[in-house]
């Protein structure tokens, strides 16, 4: 899919993946998340090969793919709590996550009644409910309205100000200031 690719990311930095459809933006993110195998090359975190300790790598990043992984039969709160528990973060930050994405009034509503944008926000709320250093985001703004995109940009800025990192695939401006661009394809 791609060869001769190299990049590094420091604390507080962001990398934006660009390129036409099918150029491998999603594949690169899945590869970073360990869902695709690398044919060649290395991926290191703090100088350590991530293949040496996959469990340690998996608590570094949060992955938000195309699909929201929101169960229609569970309520919004149950969905977010579930992923927070799976991440080992407990449910302490769930209310905070609901508030950040302006879905607190929908907390007890089964997710099957949500609109596409509300479902996307429920999916992204995982990022707040289970804090991780590196966010791997695949077209995070799809389905979000202007207000939600703006508050998500603020959230990303806050994350980076706290030393977090972001790698995002996108076609539109996400509001990531002075991010490095990586053009694929």
């Amino acid at each position: 899919m791609f060869a001769g690719l190299g990049f590094s990311l420091g604390s507080g930095e962001a990398l934006v993946l660009r390129g036409p459809n099918g150029s491998g933006k999603s594949s690169l993110l899945r590869l970073l998340a360990g869902l695709l195998r690398r044919e060649a090359g290395t991926l290191t975190w703090n100088g350590e090969d991530v293949d040496d300790d996959r469990e340690a790598w998996r608590v570094v990043f949060a992955f938000a793919g195309h699909a929201d992984a929101v169960k229609p039969l569970l309520t919004v709160r149950e969905n977010i709590s579930f992923w927070a528990e799976i991440a080992g973060a407990g449910t302490a930050r769930v209310s905070d996550a609901l508030a950040r994405f302006a879905i607190a009034p929908l907390a007890e509503v089964p997710a099957r009644f949500l609109s596409a944008g509300q479902r996307r926000r429920t999916g992204l709320a995982r990022l707040v409910a289970a804090p991780r250093t590196l966010w791997l985001l695949d077209e995070p703004s799809v389905g979000l309205d202007a207000d939600a995109t703006e508050s998500f940009a603020a959230l990303m800025a806050e994350h980076r100000a706290g030393g977090g990192m972001i790698i995002a695939a996108t076609h539109i401006e996400l509001g990531l200031d002075d991010a490095t661009n990586l053009v694929l394809g």
């Binding site: 899945r30 469990e55 998996r58 990043f61 992955f63 793919g65 699909a67 799976i86 991440a87 080992g88």
Partner: peptide, 8 residues
């Protein structure tokens, strides 16, 4: 995908 990328 998310389960596979989780610490479990």
């Amino acid at each position: 995908d998310l389960l596979m990328a989780s610490p479990l």
